[in-house]
């Protein structure tokens, strides 16, 4: 049993051009208009990942706690901007609340996983912490984008009911809580569904990577279980915090639904 990673040489890496040619061929034959994006995307993939590779090598070598915290916080910020941009229902949404909810979920769940479950030495090992936090963040980002979008979508489609609740004397929370519940559910559903099919439909990226890297599949599986459950927890926390912080923005100071979101007769 070969137990080491098979390195990809520069020449072998260059052979990936074959793959790009296939993709590009399909695009130009069918006139998909994707050729420019494909070339630009390919260049970016090479450049970005090469730089990240160098950066991670450097960061792992230094392994400074404050540098790790700074990097993870920056990653949270970029993720929150991406999440907010992706939500078509949400107008002028400030990144701050998304940032706060990602910080809360990522740091809480990530710290539990890194210090309690994996417990490397030193406990803040960059080689463990950065990939783990990154995986949590990527999934939490998708989750909060979905639930934020759903919250605003629900508030629009249920305007009549929400305003009727207010007219009965409900507080904003009482009037909106069904929509909040739907929003959190929407954010968590893909993660919960992935718990059902993991390993059956496809092998998760991290597990694949470990196996290609020469790890024993049964060891890789243990890591993958930790990863799946930590992602579920992080998505749940992220959605809950964000929707809990955001629902108030749908109402004005007097507790009435903001006019922009209301569809008037």
């Amino acid at each position: 049993m070969e137990n080491s990673i098979i390195p990809i040489s520069n020449f072998q890496l260059a052979l990936t051009v074959i793959l790009v040619l296939i993709t590009g061929g399909i695009s130009s034959v069918l006139k998909l208009g994707l050729l420019k994006s494909l070339i630009w995307g390919t260049i970016r993939t090479f450049v970005q990942l090469t730089l990240v590779g160098y950066a991670l090598t450097y960061i792992f070598a230094i392994n400074n706690l404050w540098l790790i915290i700074a990097i993870i916080t920056l990653m949270c910020y970029i993720a929150s901007r991406t999440a907010v941009k992706r939500t078509s229902n949400v107008p002028d949404y400030p990144t701050l609340l998304a940032f706060l909810s990602l910080l809360a979920s990522t740091y809480l769940v990530g710290s539990i996983v890194v210090t309690l479950i994996i417990s490397p030495d030193p406990w803040y090992s960059a080689r463990i912490a950065i990939p783990i936090f990154g995986m949590i963040l990527g999934n939490a980002m998708n989750g909060i984008a979905l639930s934020l979008d759903r919250l605003y979508g629900e508030a629009r489609s249920r305007t009549t009911e929400i305003e009727a609740m207010l007219a009965f004397g409900a507080t904003p929370w009482e009037a909106i809580r069904d929509s909040v519940r739907e929003a959190v559910r929407a954010g968590m559903t893909p993660t919960i569904n992935s718990l059902m099919v993991v390993g059956l439909v496809s092998l998760p990226g991290m597990m694949t990577g470990q196996i290609l890297g020469g790890a024993d599949p049964s060891e890789a599986v243990r890591y993958q279980i930790v990863v799946m459950l930590m992602i579920a927890a992080a998505v749940a926390i992220g959605c809950l915090v964000l929707v809990g912080l955001s629902y108030k923005k749908l109402f004005n100071n007097d507790g009435a639904l903001q006019p922009f979101y209301g569809v008037r007769p």
């Binding site: 305003e163 009727a164 007769p265």
Partner: peptide, 15 residues
């Protein structure tokens, strides 16, 4: 909330 329960608006479109 107390005001709205006492000065109650019944919208044209029933909720």
């Amino acid at each position: 909330s107390i005001w709205r329960a006492n000065v109650h608006y019944l919208a044209q479109k029933p909720a």
